[in-house]
C-alpha cells in the first residue's frame, strides 16, 4: 500500500464531503443550475475546505522542518515559541498602528515569529545533546513565557479578543472568500521547502555529517527558520494556531517512511491536510447545526496520539 495515492484519494473524498456539508442544503449535482448553491460553495464551502487543507499541509511540513532544525522529534511550531512570536508581532503592530494594512501585519507576524524561533534554536544549541527531553521542555517553557507576555499585553491594551482568536481557537467557521488567501503563502512556503528537502534531511544528520558533506548549515537553518515562521504566522493571522498537527503528523510519517524528506514531505503534507480536514468535518458534524473548533478536536486527538508516540518511541529516538 503506497501512502501517497491512498492519502490523495482520502483527501479528495474528504474535500467533497466538506464542500457538501454545512448549514445550508447544497446538492453538488445541481450546483451548475442552482445559482444560490453555487454561491454558497464558491464563497464559503470551497474557501473553507481549501483553508483547512492548506493549514494542515503547511503546519505539518513546518513541523518536519523545525524537528530537523533542532534534531528532536518532540517539538512542533506550536511548542517552539513560533506561534506566540507571531501573536506578539501582530499585537505590537495592532497597538502601534491600529489601521495598519494587511501586508504590514503579515510581515510583523512573520518577523516576530522568526525572532522567537531563532531564540528557541539558540537555547536548544546550548543544551546537552543527549538530553532528548530537554528540548521539548525548553520549547514549552519558552512558549509559555511568550504566551504570558502576549496575554498580559493583550489585557493591558484591551485586545484580548484578538489574542484569543490567534492563539486559542484554531477554527475555520469564519473562513469565507477573501478572508483566507494569506494561507496560500503558507502553502507556497511549505511547497518551496520541498526543493531543499535533501538539505534538511542532511541537516537532520547532525552538524558534523552536514559539514562533512559540504552543506552550509547556517544557510539551511535560515531557510528552515523562514519557512516555519511564515507558515505559522499566516496560520495564526487567519485561523488561529492549530495544536499538535506539526508535532504528530511528522512523527507518524517518519515511523512508516523514515526521514528521507524528498519522498516523505509530500506524504507529510497530504497526511496533515487529511487529519485537519477530518477534524474540521467532525467538528461540523458532532453537534449540528453548531460547531466545535477543529483546533479543539485536534487538541484532544493530538494529545492522545502524542502520548501513544511517546510510549512507543524507542529509547534512543
Amino acid at each position: 500500500m503506497r501512502p501517497l495515492p491512498v492519502l490523495g484519494a482520502a483527501l479528495l473524498a474528504l474535500m467533497l464531503v466538506s464542500v457538501s456539508v454545512g448549514a445550508a442544503q447544497v446538492d453538488l449535482r445541481t450546483i451548475l443550475s442552482d445559482h444560490r448553491a453555487m454561491l454558497v460553495v464558491l464563497e464559503s464551502r470551497l474557501p473553507r475546505t481549501v483553508a483547512v487543507v492548506l493549514t494542515g499541509a503547511a503546519l505539518s511540513v513546518a513541523g518536519v522542518l523545525i524537528q530537523a532544525l533542532v534534531r528532536n522529534r518532540f517539538v512542533g511550531p506550536d511548542t517552539s515559541g513560533t506561534a506566540e512570536g507571531a501573536a506578539l508581532g501582530l499585537l505590537a503592530v495592532t497597538i502601534l498602528w491600529p489601521a495598519s494594512p494587511l501586508w504590514l501585519r503579515m510581515i510583523a507576524a512573520s518577523a516576530a515569529a522568526m525572532a522567537t524561533t531563532a531564540l528557541f534554536l539558540a537555547v536548544v544549541r546550548r543544551l546537552p545533546v543527549r538530553e532528548v527531553m530537554l528540548v521539548p521542555i525548553a520549547g514549552l517553557v519558552l512558549s509559555g513565557v511568550l504566551g504570558s507576555v502576549v496575554t498580559f499585553v493583550g489585557w493591558q491594551s484591551d485586545l484580548m479578543q484578538y489574542v484569543g482568536t490567534w492563539l486559542m481557537s484554531g477554527e475555520f467557521s469564519g473562513v469565507i472568500s477573501g478572508r483566507y488567501e494569506l494561507l496560500w503563502f503558507a502553502g507556497i512556503a511549505a511547497a518551496l521547502a520541498w526543493f531543499s528537502a535533501d538539505r534538511f534531511a542532511i541537516l537532520g544528520l547532525g552538524d558534523g555529517v552536514a559539514t562533512g558533506l559540504g552543506l552550509s548549515t547556517a544557510a539551511v537553518m535560515r531557510l528552515g527558520l523562514a519557512v516555519v515562521s511564515i507558515v505559522t504566522a499566516m496560520v495564526v493571522t487567519t485561523v488561529g494556531m492549530i495544536p499538535f498537527v506539526g508535532l504528530v503528523v511528522p512523527n507518524l510519517v517518519a515511523r512508516i517512511m523514515g526521514d528521507n524528506l524528498r519522498t516523505s514531505l509530500p506524504v507529510v503534507a497530504l497526511a496533515g491536510a487529511v487529519l485537519v480536514l477530518a477534524c474540521d468535518l467532525a467538528g461540523r458534524l458532532v453537534i449540528r447545526p453548531y460547531e466545535v473548533p477543529a483546533g479543539l478536536i485536534l487538541g484532544i486527538l493530538g494529545a492522545v496520539l502524542f502520548l501513544w508516540l511517546l510510549h512507543r518511541r524507542p529509547a534512543h529516538g
Binding site: 534534531r71 528532536n72 522529534r73 532528548v132 535533501d198 534531511a201 542532511i202 537532520g204 544528520l205 547532525g206 555529517v209 558533506l213 559540504g214 552543506l215 517518519a254 515511523r255 523514515g258 526521514d259 528521507n260 534512543h316 529516538g317
Partner: peptide, 17 residues
C-alpha cells in the same frame, strides 16, 4: 543520530557533494 534513514539512503548522501 536520531535520523530515521534507510542505510541505502544514508550511504547515498555520501554522493551529495
Amino acid at each position: 543520530i536520531a535520523s530515521r534513514l534507510r542505510l541505502s539512503e544514508l550511504v547515498a548522501f555520501g554522493r551529495w557533494p
